[in-house]
Design a protein around this nucleic acid. Structure first.
Lengths: 345, 345
DNA sequence: CTGAAAGCGCTTACAG
DNA sequence: CTGAAAGCGCTTACAG
């Protein structure tokens, strides 16, 4: 089976009718439609996507751009794979397919995205790991490609995004620690220019202020968002003159490295130092003592991302009356033992 | 900037010349080529992929199919993301792009692949997690789509694959344990129909035989390929009447769950029970005592996969004289402490 | 309800 | 070296 032409010839009808039957258009004789569908199934005919795309001006493919830097590969969990389930469950309603576009680590993400967008391989894009200044957003806005960003940014003006509730996490963590008597609370923040670092540190600062605790820049420890970064954070923390009694982590895998460094130094998390981790993570689950952290559903986030994205696409907006919007995605506290103790005054 | 037509008009030359200049064809005036490239860069013109694909009959896209079952999402590490670096470094030589195609968990992988193949969204495919009987392979062979499978299978006859050296791992693990005095060696094997399970158990059996150790089916513990599976394996091992003194794991994350169950039972890995894990994994690195396991480079495997795939593609075979082939990918033993003790006779 | 035809944006023989 | 034209495989007004 080659193309629609052969299928039409085989059925002895025109290609127009075959196309209409296959695409569920009205005004096709039911009998004819059945014959066409049966023959297509039998001969394994499926319309060539390039032909469709060219004619329709739409690819019916949604791209999820992922950055596969060495750091991401070694340290990220399956964050993106976790999103795909929710994304696909929504996209499937509209017969849209999801493809993941891994940006090569030696290619500039901006150039990569530009190329993908210009070639029109997808109808819309999901980007993530937004930077404080992120030219990708300006690019997408300017190219008028529907998109949603997982993460806020200073770039792009009024674009559509969903972001995790870093403010809520920071406030909740600080409140919890202060309630247990902590006043010197450190934070491990990313050394990169990723936007969430700014948001998190700001929120941390404001939370301290609410409790009348002076902000000490020495307690903001800048490290890589990785297990190694967590180890490094532990290391630097131990070198501080006026040691903090608690630390809040901004990235899930940091906890593993941090615990490791603390154990080496004979410091017991949850007894000598209070630790609050970020996102609950299968890999960090077995840490002893159990890590206090925050829970969210990647699947639900995927659903929200997809529905928000579709709301920005002219062809689907009507199904999503909530419209393109900006959403702060909540996380739920999961109390553990890593911050259970009360500080003696 | 819309299409090649506008670009040509802007330059006041024909679209044919524009196309030839952009595609590095010979017989284009150097001056003209420069003008075209400059104008394309300036106006941000990149050829529409659908138009190219339709005309050329090739998409210049390679698909990497990944299955995103709940189990994979929660437990697999970034195995696939780890491959992309190596894959892309080879594909970039030929201006081929890599897309990851995540099969929705509620869709049959066979149907998903069939749809992707029929729509001609990719020129060639990489599949993985091959089953003992895997209809996807028959499908790809029949459809004459170039492909390479990461994993052997009984299906498909003489197809192109790369697979890990499970035989070598099993032999090396058994030899090592026997040398330390072990005679009752258990193995945690996958409960699914994935082909590597068969290969691994067979190799384990043969290795025992070489040492004249009788095969005891009770020592083959079938569990899920996950951290939880490892926990379960530990649990079942502890219930055995005639307990093994050693266990070989077939999946990297099992070690974490196994350790957890052993610790609960007061059984110390590396003292009371010898443990040999499978692939070295960042997440399992911090296990105490350090896990004896096997190392491989995902990046190098990605390179090998890409080069093998290209050898199966008529347009690129000439660059890869080694041709389409079947490769057993070696792993290197990384000695740890988890099996360091000698068994008292 | 169906068919004939146009045209989506490209690349590529072919002619000059 | 360049231009004019055909045609890749579809979908979709348009005519009947």
């Amino acid at each position: 089976m080659k193309g629609i032409r052969q299928l039409a010839k085989h059925l002895d009808i025109s290609i127009g009718t075959v196309s209409r039957a296959l695409n569920d258009k009205p005004d096709v004789n039911e009998e004819t439609r059945k014959r066409v569908l049966a023959a297509a199934e039998e001969l394994g005919y499926v319309a060539n996507q390039s032909g469709r795309s060219l004619r329709q001006g739409t690819t019916n493919v949604i791209g999820l751009m992922i950055e596969s830097s060495k750091e991401t590969v070694e340290n990220s969990d399956n964050f993106f794979l976790g999103l795909t389930g929710g994304l696909q469950s929504v996209l499937a309603r509209h017969k849209l397919d999801l493809v993941m576009l891994p940006c090569p680590s030696d290619e500039d993400p901006y150039e990569y995205l530009k190329r993908m967008v210009a070639r029109r391989v997808v109808d819309a894009m999901i980007i993530s790991a937004t930077q404080r200044i992120d030219r990708r957003i300006d690019l997408l806005v300017k190219a008028k490609i529907p998109f949603v960003a997982l993460g806020r940014s200073s770039s792009g003006g009024n674009y559509t995004w969903i972001d995790l509730d870093f403010e809520g996490v920071a406030a909740s963590a600080v409140d919890r620690l202060v309630a247990k008597g902590h006043r010197r609370i450190a934070i491990a923040a990313p050394s990169s220019d990723i936007n969430l670092g700014y948001v998190f540190v700001d929120a941390y600062q404001q939370s301290l202020e609410r409790h009348g605790i002076p902000y000490d820049p020495k307690l903001v420890i800048r490290v890589k968002s990785s297990e190694q970064g967590g180890y490094q954070a532990g290391h630097e923390l131990l070198l501080l003159d006026n040691k903090p009694t608690a630390i809040i982590l901004i990235y899930e895998l940091m906890a593993i490295g941090l615990y490791r460094r603390l154990v080496e130094a004979g410091v017991v998390p949850g007894r000598d130092l209070a630790v609050i981790g970020f996102r609950e993570e299968p890999r960090a689950k077995f840490l002893q003592p159990a890590l206090t952290c925050f829970r969210m559903s990647l699947r639900d986030l995927g659903v929200e991302l997809a529905e928000t994205l579709l709301a920005t696409m002219p062809a689907f907006a009507k199904f999503y009356p909530k419209g393109a919007r900006n959403t702060i995605w909540p996380l739920e506290l999961v109390p553990g033992e890593s911050d259970a103790f009360f500080l003696n005054p």
